[in-house]
Design a protein around this nucleic acid. Structure first.
Length: 293
DNA sequence: AACCAGGACACAA
DNA sequence: TTGTGTCATGGT
């Protein structure tokens, strides 16, 4: 680890051979990363971070001295043995093709509140639009975060407490439309302690899912996103329009399959890392025609 | 310019 | 239990 004392900048390199930053940071898990001249800039746990591939590793830069990098290695999940995850996948052709096409794609481990709020805003929105909404939300209601002078101003993701005080009309000005009352209700539930997000880390997946679904605007799909992307429940399998399309086209071509059947299939077919498999299928579907002739 | 987007919900049948 | 309309907004 090398720290530049004069500039207060601090750097580290995580050994992460094969880690695909582009796929991971831009695959609809997190919505705050921006691609800027070959690097990814984002805010993690209230810190400005710049990430860039460096040989077999990922170089990270912050603006403040950092004594421990656990917060970032945990977020990026650089220590997860991806080969073991993939080795545990079923060997069916569709999934193997997805794995081959998206090699190096990983699941992140995000902050529960940011993840929950972001996915409340995600319903029937394209990823670019979700990024825009989240960006506006942070700009208007998030605390300023120290960033390099040359960088654009940075803001932390607004806390539940901060958002709980905001009016629905103000939220709607962030272009979130009918999702505004949902976000506000979630913020208030968390701020009041009616929903303890920290406590969810210690309960069974099904119980955590039930708790999340009590929130208005949070159904099975959004709950599973939070369980998978924030709580590391790798058996959670969010089925959105893309994953639904992937399952239908790749596993049940020319067949009528109910959503319930798809959910049942997802629970039984993909094994202990079903959530990981889900992310590969999602990204595969979204990118497979992108570079086609 | 229609169509669709990492859905959820109330209500109908 | 399963199907349909609605919600708000902007990209493609």
């Amino acid at each position: 680890m090398i720290c530049g004392k004069k500039t207060r900048q601090c750097r580290v390199v995580f050994h992460a051979p094969g880690y695909d930053l582009d796929a991971t940071l831009d695959s609809g898990q997190a919505f705050r990363w921006q691609h800027e001249d070959g690097a990814w800039v984002g805010i993690v746990k209230g810190r400005w971070v710049r990430l860039v591939r460096a040989g077999q590793g990922i170089r990270a830069e912050t603006v403040q001295d950092v004594t421990s990098w656990d917060w970032l290695s945990d977020y990026l999940q650089v220590n997860v043995r991806l080969d073991e995850v993939i080795a545990a996948f079923p060997t069916d052709k569709p999934l193997q093709e997805a794995v081959a096409a998206c090699s190096g794609l990983r699941l992140l481990r995000q902050d529960p509140w940011e993840c929950l709020a972001s996915f409340i805003l995600s319903s029937t929105k394209q990823i670019v639009q979700i990024k825009q909404i989240v960006g506006l939300l942070c700009e208007r209601f998030g605390e300023p975060v120290a960033a390099p002078a040359s960088a654009t101003p940075a803001y932390a993701f607004p806390t539940a407490t901060a958002l709980a005080k905001v009016s629905e009309a103000e939220l709607r000005r962030c272009k979130m439309g009918f999702r505004a009352p949902y976000l506000l209700a979630a913020a208030q539930a968390v701020a009041r302690g009616e929903l303890n997000l920290s406590a969810l880390a210690g309960v069974e997946t099904e119980e955590a899912r039930t708790s999340l679904i009590t929130l208005p605007g949070v159904g099975r799909k959004i709950a599973d996103c939070v369980l998978l992307f924030a709580y590391g429940r790798q058996d959670a399998f969010p089925v959105d329009v893309w994953v639904s399309k992937a399952l239908r086209e790749l596993y049940f071509p020319e067949q009528l399959v109910t959503p319930k059947h798809l959910l049942e299939f997802s629970r039984t077919h993909f094994g202990p890392y079903a959530g990981y498999a889900q992310q590969y299928l999602f990204h595969y579907m979204r990118t497979r025609y992108a570079s086609a002739p």
